[in-house]
């Protein structure tokens, strides 16, 4: 969405209406102060200070890209070409012509769905195993070496094996997401559990919490900052893995969309897809960070 807007700003060609998002209006408010509220001016200035520098950098990069790729014989399209080629995909993400000929929304939602399944399972299993490993010395001695070896296996190396096991693309992709994102969750949870101050354990002992209450009332909140670090790394890794996995399993999904675009030499579509993948990865990360901020309020401070 921002890409065309930036382009319009940078090269000043056409489509002035194509910039519904971006903070352009806020930025423009700054030079002429409304007499009504100084608060808004201040807010505008703060937003501008955060939004303007990346916009400038982006505009410069776009200009550079445009200049480099404009020459005849260049292997990659310049931004203006990308926009022209993918206009339909950008403005109509919801079409569905059956099969894999669908709008980007459907591809992205298919990918996100797989990530949601795989990642949810990874979060539950990861926190459970991490708790076990963090709490029990014997579980740690037994399992930790195993985890340390398994976690170094690249996500895609699991795919053929899971295809052999599940004989279907969908569960295989979900499994790859799961196996990729579970390790950082396990390891961080275990560290968090191990670092629970003895004081809290003493409090729990004096109050005589049972193991279940201890888990929900002491362990999880005390280890929450660590757990969320793991969850954040995990969501990033699952988003990395899904694109690669989908390239191989085919069907609907942003990974396959990219692969299909490559096979049909639609380079502009690849660039558009990469843009979406980046934005969604960023949003997912922010989402987990936001949840972490709400859940762990107070825990970090003491």
């Amino acid at each position: 969405m921002t890409m065309p807007a930036i382009k319009a700003e940078a090269t000043a060609v056409a489509i002035p209406t194509a910039s519904p998002t971006s903070a352009a209006p806020v930025v423009m408010m700054t030079p002429k102060p409304a007499p009504r509220a100084e608060k808004y001016i201040k807010m505008g200035k703060e937003t501008a200070a955060r939004v303007v520098p990346p916009l400038i950098v982006l505009a410069l990069l776009m200009m550079f890209w445009e200049l480099v790729c404009r020459r005849t014989g260049s292997t990659l399209p310049p931004p203006s070409r990308v926009f022209k080629d993918t206009k339909e995909l950008i403005f109509d993400p919801f079409f569905d012509n059956g099969g894999i000929d669908k709008g980007l929304f459907w591809h992205l939602s298919a990918s996100l769905q797989r990530v949601a399944y795989g990642y949810s399972i990874a979060a539950i299993v990861g926190i459970a195993l991490g708790t076990l490993v963090g709490q029990s010395v014997w579980a740690m001695r037994g399992l930790d070496p195993l985890f340390q070896v398994l976690r170094t296996i690249p996500p895609l190396a699991w795919l053929p094996l899971s295809l052999a096991a599940f004989r279907d693309g969908q569960p295989s992709a979900i499994f790859v997401i799961f196996i990729t994102s579970v390790w950082p969750i396990i390891i961080n949870t275990a560290v968090g559990i191990r670092n629970i101050p003895q004081d809290y354990r003493n409090v729990a002992a004096v109050v005589q919490l049972n193991p279940l209450e201890f888990f929900s009332k002491i362990m999880i909140p005390a280890a929450a900052p660590y757990i969320f670090t793991g969850l954040r790394i995990g969501i990033g890794l699952s988003w990395l893995a899904i694109v690669a996995a989908e390239m191989l399993i085919g069907g609907v999904g942003i990974g396959f969309f990219i692969w299909d675009a490559w096979n049909s030499s639609h380079i502009s579509e690849i660039i558009l897809a990469l843009f979406y993948v980046g934005i969604i990865g960023f949003v997912l990360d922010r989402l987990i960070a936001g949840v972490a901020k709400i859940v762990t309020r107070g825990t970090a401070l003491n």
Binding site: D199, Y200, N202, V206, V207, I218, A222, T296, N302
Partner: peptide, 19 residues
């Protein structure tokens, strides 16, 4: 010989649960 609320402790560093 095990902890219990009949012998409640006030800890040196308060040990309140911050969350």
């Amino acid at each position: 010989n095990s902890p219990g609320p009949d012998r409640a402790v006030v800890f040196q560093n308060h040990s309140l649960l911050p969350w």
